[in-house]
Design a protein around this nucleic acid. Structure first.
Length: 828
RNA sequence: GCCCGGGUGGCGGAAAUGGUGAUACGCAGUCGACUUAAAAUCGACGGCCCGCAAGGGCAUGUGGGUUCGAAUCCCACCCCGGGCACCA
């Protein structure tokens, strides 16, 4: 027999061209009537986060799509119709920055990158329904992004206001809170972010805080991702309490989570951004100092200001407010530890029971009045944050627990009209406007007479104009395209100007999964019946880095669009899987470190099947994995051994026969191998459901090892079954090699075959190795029958030679029998 | 500081619900076969210590505990990774 060589470069393109020419992975939307009358096969929507096309795909992409493709294939073979589409998140800063540097239009460089992604996805053999492909920068897509924007605008969910916003001086654009990292740096370019007052567009995501929080309970997401979202939303229960400044006759409500400590409030603090600060200070001796303080604070970066280690600063305003519970006049301060964006921008300060207020009081020599004492009567060290009983408060409340007092005080405030129970969220409205070119234009016209006027639906899309200069100059580069900017008001036909800001790219990616369901619809963003068929996404796959931003925004879009009557569901992604990062030598791959492994070079060296299997085999896919070229070689050897043994066995058992089955009367090595094959089916099936692809692949390796060991002693038929099964089980990970092997054996296409089922009878054994322990230590092992009674098992154990050596001459205290496992004798 | 994950051989990692000698599978390593040689391939051996062996002792970050039995459960601590961080 001639030596056969495993040649992925021959095998892979051959199968890829079958899938391309037959459009194997395309699925149609069933007409609705059919879905109702015919028993429609169950469907599944398997989706990986769409890539941002910049340069070439990297290893992280390979991992995401290897995971997603395995899931998609598994669902198909379980008999489901699977929607598994692909698209590109093709608006964004990197292409624009590239354009600034090289003059190449972002559309051109993006198109090149997309072509590269397409080529590589095909070369990886990912089972994509290419008929639904989309790019968010394509007018046929962003037309509908604009339509959604206008729907939100008309509903009051998109609005414009002046705001202190995060401004990146390098990228010359506003950033969302979420795009500023922990050090106060721009997520993209790393420059220190500044604060500016600008008119900006926002989405009213805060209206949805409660629902975004509560509905987390209805979806099957990793707990840590839910936790991150919960923290981000940051719900706090408490009360809003009104403090009145008598001199100016102004009420200042504050939010507090601790109304039980109201009697301990000894001063009052406002954020530097608070619009009343200068008015309050005006005419007092502190006017000048307050003004200077506000100015310095506003210039300070968030990084400097947010540092909790920093000692407290502030300036007295020379005014007082009245504490509503006891009528005390307490002094007002302005201090930068109070944030304008949270609560009301003003706080009551209780130095005895709040660390920050305590620091401030110590620095400024303000009174500290303890109003809660530990319930056990011990002396509390201040600030005391814990629970206890009220003291120094009011005879109605002193002595009762602070939890009770909290409720009692809130209802008292409510009755007196001085406050009420309240809930606050950390979540802020989503700033969506960007002063950049390469993004979706905001379809609004500014008319001097009519104000903000939406571009009529039938005039969408508002297409991006051609410009020569992408360089941002503090305003959108679009402002330079005067022919485009100057237009007529759709309302009054008077002269008007187009909005020159573009949308944050997260807007584009907040609804793309809807568009896939009806990607070629030219008269609507989607037809409701198309969504009914596929949505919500059954399994979403992507990196944890999107745990907050993208996943929160997409959820918000669904809820808002559902409220507007466009969707019949409120959660886009029923289940989520987040895969870990791929590192090299323990650190993140990056060009500057020079440790980038390109998927293309791996595929060229060992083929896509090896690359895909390796990345799933190296460890649990939800964890980070370190790339090792030696490990890749190991997987390559495995696929090669499997393919060669299969090819050799197929030659021996030719011609191919469609059915693949074991011998019912198998015995000896045939039975051993048959059992192993069924064990592997059972193991892989379970592992697929748990995303345990690493152990699934190792189970197939075990099956191959046994097949190889028994290649001479087992029958050709059993060997054929074992190896055909191995190919069938490996198909979701190594589709080309598996399809090739399966076809050799059966002449059939493995992707058209149902997922194999394990024969229960072959999973069970009639004899097993009984573990014989003495005092919990294994002393011997004997063959036992599954049928044996506990009494018989005890006897077997007592009879074992090495057990006797440890038991003889000792007192038997206890006997523990675990049928099917072990017997443990306790002796003294 | 708070909230999540994790600590298992030289390495990546296995081990639903406590139950085989924990370390499957792969990598690296050692030895052997084939070869003029190498590569490729195939086969064998690999936790540590004592012992010729049978066997015994010690081993899942550290220290306690629960249990006939703990990588797995409980308590305390140490280390690593991630998220949030003046959110009142």
């Amino acid at each position: 027999m001639s030596e056969r060589r495993y040649d992925p470069h021959e095998i892979e393109p051959r199968w890829q061209s079958v899938w391309a020419s037959e459009r194997t992975w395309e699925v149609d939307n069933e007409p609705l009537e059919d879905a109702r009358t015919v028993v429609a096969p169950p469907s599944a929507y398997v989706l990986e986060m769409l890539p941002y096309p910049s340069g070439e795909p990297h290893i992280g992409h390979l991992k995401t799509y290897s995971v997603g493709d395995a899931i998609a294939h598994f669902h198909r073979r379980l008999g489901q119709r699977v929607l598994h589409p692909m698209g590109y998140d093709s608006f964004g800063l990197p292409a624009e920055n590239h354009a600034i540097k090289t003059g190449v239009h972002p559309r051109v460089s993006t198109a090149e990158s997309i072509a590269s992604f397409q080529r590589q996805f095909r070369s990886w053999g990912i089972s994509i329904d290419w008929s639904r492909e989309l790019a968010t920068s394509d007018p046929s897509y962003y037309r509908w992004t604009q339509w959604i924007f206008l729907e939100l605008f008309r509903a009051g969910l998109a609005y414009r206001r002046e705001a202190a916003v995060k401004w990146c001086p390098k990228d010359q654009t506003v950033l969302a809170n979420e795009q500023v990292d922990a050090d106060g740096r721009c997520e993209r370019c790393g420059a220190i972010v500044e604060v500016r007052q600008l008119e900006q567009w926002f989405f009213r995501i805060t209206d949805y805080a409660e629902r975004l929080l509560n509905d987390l309970d209805t979806i099957d997401w990793p707990e840590h991702v839910k936790t991150m979202q919960r923290n981000w939303i940051g719900r706090s229960e408490g009360a809003e309490v009104t403090f009145r400044c008598q001199e100016l006759a102004i009420d200042y409500p504050v939010f507090t989570t601790r109304p039980d400590t109201l009697f301990g409030a000894t001063f009052f603090v406002m954020a530097p951004e608070h619009p009343d600060v200068l008015r309050l200070a005006a005419g007092t001796p502190n006017e000048q100092a307050a003004r200077e303080y506000v100015n310095t604070s506003l210039k300070e970066s968030n990084e400097e200001r947010g540092n909790a280690e920093k000692h407290k600063t502030g300036v007295p305003l020379g005014r007082t407010v009245t504490n509503p519970v006891n009528g005390e006049q307490i002094p007002m301060y302005v201090a930068d530890y109070v944030l304008m964006e949270y609560g009301t921008g003003a706080i009551m300060a209780v130095p005895a029971h709040d660390e920050r207020d305590h620091d401030f009081a110590v620095t400024f020599g303000l009174p500290i009045r303890q109003v809660i004492a530990p319930a056990d009567g011990s002396e509390a060290e201040l600030p005391y944050i814990g629970d206890g009983v009220l003291i120094n408060s009011h005879s109605d409340f002193d002595g009762i627990s602070n939890r009770e007092a909290l409720a009692a005080i809130v209802s008292w405030l409510d009755r007196e009209g001085k406050g009420h129970a309240s809930v606050n969220y950390r979540l802020r409205d989503w700033l969506v406007s960007r002063q950049r070119y390469w993004g979706c234009p905001i379809p609004i016209v500014h008319c001097e007479r009519c104000g903000l006027v939406p571009v009529p639906d039938e005039q969408l899309p508002v297409e991006l104009p051609e410009i020569d200069d992408y360089l941002p100059k503090g305003r959108s580069p679009l402002a330079a395209a005067e022919d485009w900017v100057n237009t007529r008001c759709p309302n009054c036909d008077g002269p008007a100007k187009r909005e020159t800001d573009t949308m944050d790219t997260f807007v584009d990616s907040s609804w793309y999964y809807l568009r896939y369901c009806d990607a070629r619809n030219e008269s609507a963003a989607w037809d409701p019946s198309a969504l009914r068929q596929w949505m919500p996404v059954d399994q979403y796959i992507g990196g944890v880095e999107h745990a907050i931003l993208h996943l929160m925004y997409a959820r918000f879009f669904c809820k808002a669009l559902a409220d507007l009557g466009h969707l019949e569901f409120e959660e886009p992604f029923q289940a989520l899987f987040t895969q870990g990062m791929v590192t090299k030598d323990g650190s993140k791959m990056s060009k500057s470190r020079g440790n980038v492994v390109s998927p293309a070079s791996i595929v060229e060296r060992v083929g896509a099947d090896t690359a895909r299997c390796y990345i799933l085999f190296v460890g649990p896919p939800d964890q980070d994995a370190d790339w090792s070229d030696e490990g890749v070689d190991g997987v390559y050897r495995f696929l090669g051994r499997l393919w060669r043994l299969a090819a050799e066995t197929a030659d021996r058992t030719a011609p191919a026969q469609p059915e693949l089955s074991g011998d019912a009367g198998a015995e000896g090595d045939d039975l051993i191998l048959l059992r192993k094959a069924h064990w592997a089916i059972d193991k892989v099936s379970g592992d697929m459901r748990r995303f345990a692809f690493n152990t699934a692949i190792s189970a197939v390796m075990e099956l191959l090892n046994d097949s190889s060991r028994l290649r001479e002693s087992a029958s050709a038929r059993t060997l054929r079954f074992a190896l055909g099964t191995a190919a069938s089980l490996l198909f979701p990970f190594a589709p080309h090699t598996s399809a090739d092997i399966y076809e050799r054996f059966t002449g059939e296409r493995v992707w058209e075959q149902p997922w194999p089922e394990a024969d229960e009878a072959l999973l069970e054994r009639d004899v097993y190795e009984l573990v014989c322990q003495v005092n919990g230590k294994v002393r011997d092992r004997v063959q036992a029958s599954t049928e044996a009674s506990p009494e018989q098992l005890k006897e077997l154990c007592h009879a074992a030679a090495n057990v006797r050596a440890h038991v003889d001459g000792k007192e038997l205290v206890k006997e523990i029998v675990v049928p099917g496992k072990l017997v443990n004798l306790v002796v003294r």
